[in-house]
């Protein structure tokens, strides 16, 4: 027996909107905890260090270090840490040469903006 289900979701960004809007225009926007001055990218609603409510946003310069990378059927995927962020994130790393360790955020062309970070080599 065959049964096909097609689902068409309407999704709201909610409190993640500043981060997603940043991705849309190629800006790295991190959540900020003013109590301990930690920035999380991707954002967290609560600071994992002091457990205070994140109460602001900080624009990062978009440059990051590659910590680990994997290559396969998903493409090139890396764990990267953006300058100025206290956490790392998972990112697609198109066009990053093997052995390169620095990268930069580019604009997400997906609509709605896919919360995936596309990073490229620094120029």
């Amino acid at each position: 027996m065959k049964r096909q289900v097609s689902l068409d979701y309407s999704l709201s960004a909610g409190w993640l909107a500043p981060w997603l809007e940043g991705l849309r225009v190629g800006k790295a926007v991190a959540s900020l905890c003013s109590a301990c001055n930690e920035a999380q990218f991707p954002p967290l609603r609560f600071c994992p260090t002091c457990r205070q409510h994140s109460d602001g946003w900080r624009k990062l310069d978009g440059h990051a270090d590659v910590l680990f990378r994997t290559k396969g059927t998903d493409g090139d995927i890396a764990m990267v840490r953006f300058d100025g962020a206290n956490s790392a994130c998972i990112a697609c790393i198109e066009a990053l040469p093997i052995g390169a360790t620095r990268c930069v955020l580019t604009t997400s062309t997906d609509e709605p903006p896919i919360p995936t970070l596309i990073v490229e080599p620094e120029t």
Binding site: L16, P42, F68, R69, T70, D74, I90, T116
Partner: peptide, 26 residues
């Protein structure tokens, strides 16, 4: 995984496990 940060990106579990293993192996 977190739908908004990982799920929508198309990253599958194998890539995430691979990165975690690399961190452990390092």
């Amino acid at each position: 995984f977190d739908f908004w940060t990982d799920g929508l990106s198309g990253v599958t579990s194998t890539s995430l496990y691979a990165l975690s293993w690399q961190a452990f192996a390092a």
